[in-house]
């Protein structure tokens, strides 16, 4: 029983549940609200924020799990988003690693830059598996809009991500 409660209260269980909500927001609200015709990427934001706060290992893990869940919603091959988001999470963690004591604005820069990169990883991954046609000049506009949207939404994402991925001791 204690073991079950430990698993249920672990941050990874919490992560899966929060990701379900994040993905549902992505497929409903953020699929409809399209500034300049581009859908903001909430799942990518969550992964990037987790990487920038908790480091590359946690970032990569969050990205892989989030991507795998997101993959089951998307029509593209399962596993593709997982790899792309895993890479994005790891990149976010590595970029913060170069700042000795990262301040809030350094984190924001990281989130913006990695959001931009993360949005490019996905069509790159598509091309690698033979789904050609997405590497176009439009990608520049898409990446910039996604980066700006992620910067705007990052304060909320940081708060949610901290709450989700904080390790808590179970007191029974």
């Amino acid at each position: 029983m204690i073991r079950f409660l430990t698993i249920m209260s672990s941050r990874w269980t919490r992560l899966v549940l929060v990701l379900l909500i994040v993905i549902s927001l992505q497929t409903t609200l953020f699929a409809e609200m399209r500034p300049f015709g581009v859908a903001a990427q909430l799942v990518l934001l969550f992964v990037v924020v987790s990487g920038s706060i908790n480091g590359s290992t946690i970032g990569a893990l969050t990205g892989l799990i989030a991507g795998l869940m997101y993959d089951f919603v998307l029509p593209t091959p399962v596993g593709l988003t997982s790899l792309a988001l895993g890479l994005a999470g790891a990149t976010a963690g590595l970029l913060v690693y170069f700042f000795r004591e990262p301040t809030w604005w350094m984190r924001l820069i990281t989130i913006g830059v990695v959001s931009l990169l993360g949005e490019v990883y996905y069509p790159l991954a598509q091309t690698v598996v033979g789904l050609d046609g997405w590497l176009q000049f439009r990608i520049i506009k898409v990446a910039i809009v996604v980066a700006v949207c992620n910067l705007v939404l990052s304060p909320i994402a940081i708060f949610v991500c901290r709450w989700t991925l904080t390790e808590r001791k179970l007191s029974v």
């Binding site: 290992t57 893990l61 892989l64 993959d71 091959p77 399962v78 596993g79 593709l80 790899l83 895993g86």
Partner: peptide, 25 residues
Amino acid sequence: AQLTRRRAIILLVLTSIILITLDLQ
């Protein structure tokens, strides 16, 4: 914990690659 996480990452990456291969077929 760090070692466990790294193993988890490797496992998930391999899973993703296998899933991509299966889904493309």
